[in-house]
Amino acid sequence: MSTPTSDDYVVRAIRPEEWAAVKQLRLDALRDPVAHIAFLETFDDALARPDSFYQERATRSGEGSDTARQFIAEAPDGSWAGTVTVLIERAGTTDWAGHPVERRQGHVVGVFVRPEHRGNGLIKTLFDAGVSWAWQQSAERVRLFVHADNARAQGAYRKAGFGPSGLVVSFSKDEAENELEFVLER
């Protein structure tokens, strides 16, 4: 069997009733060897959350939501190969980290592609879906944060059209744990 290309996947929004698969994909992502620099949540924290948390998350970011959308890539065998979530941030508000939002924008979070599906363009296909949805929601730009030491992710984001804005923030008390903002302007 040949390795799938990005054209072999179905990229779509999750459905609220798929909350258990959303939970499983999140747990799998948090087991990734670089999860400690890619996510702000730990596996143990995610595992301890009640099912109602994932049910609410799937409802808030599933089909029909205009404030958040989680996209998944279904492999030819029906398994979920990867995911990306885009949150809409409104100008004049503060983001999830307490920083001011200056303009309407999409904020990409929860990026994950299973190792066996990496290197075939799937990450760009997921990003294209998320960015397209953000533009439909009148976003002026789309941003994400990536750990300064996560070169693999930075490379993937650059291939998807994102570049560093120059903003560097720390989401922990350890000032060495810097996150770089990458943006894609409309």
Rank of each mutant, 00 (worst) to 15 (best):
Q136K: 03
A48S: 04
E116I: 06
Q70V: 13
T3R: 05
L184Q: 14
D66I: 08
E185H: 15
D8K: 04
G98A: 12
T42E: 07
A176I: 02
A153Y: 06
P16M: 07
T59H: 11
G163Q: 15
R141A: 13
L184R: 15
T85Q: 12
S170F: 09
R103D: 13
R90W: 02
A48G: 04
K23I: 00
D128E: 13
P164L: 07
W19S: 06
T85Y: 02
H107C: 07
R152T: 13
L144E: 00
D128M: 03
R15I: 14
E17D: 11
Q137F: 02
L126K: 06
W19K: 06
Q105E: 14
A139P: 01
W135L: 02
N178M: 10
R60H: 08
V10A: 08
V142W: 07
A153I: 05
R104I: 10
R114W: 11
D77K: 15
L47F: 13
A13N: 03
G119W: 12
F162Q: 15
G62D: 06
L40F: 14
E56W: 00
S6K: 07
T93Q: 05
V86E: 07
H99C: 02
A97S: 08
R103Y: 13
G166H: 09
K124D: 13
E102G: 03
D51Q: 00
V10T: 15
V11N: 05
L47T: 09
F171A: 09
W135D: 02
S170I: 00
A58W: 01
V86N: 10
V34W: 14
T125R: 15
W133D: 07
R158M: 12
S138K: 13
Q136R: 10
S6H: 12
K173P: 05
P115Q: 11
F145S: 08
G130V: 03
A38I: 10
R103I: 10
D128P: 05
L47G: 01
G82H: 02
V22F: 01
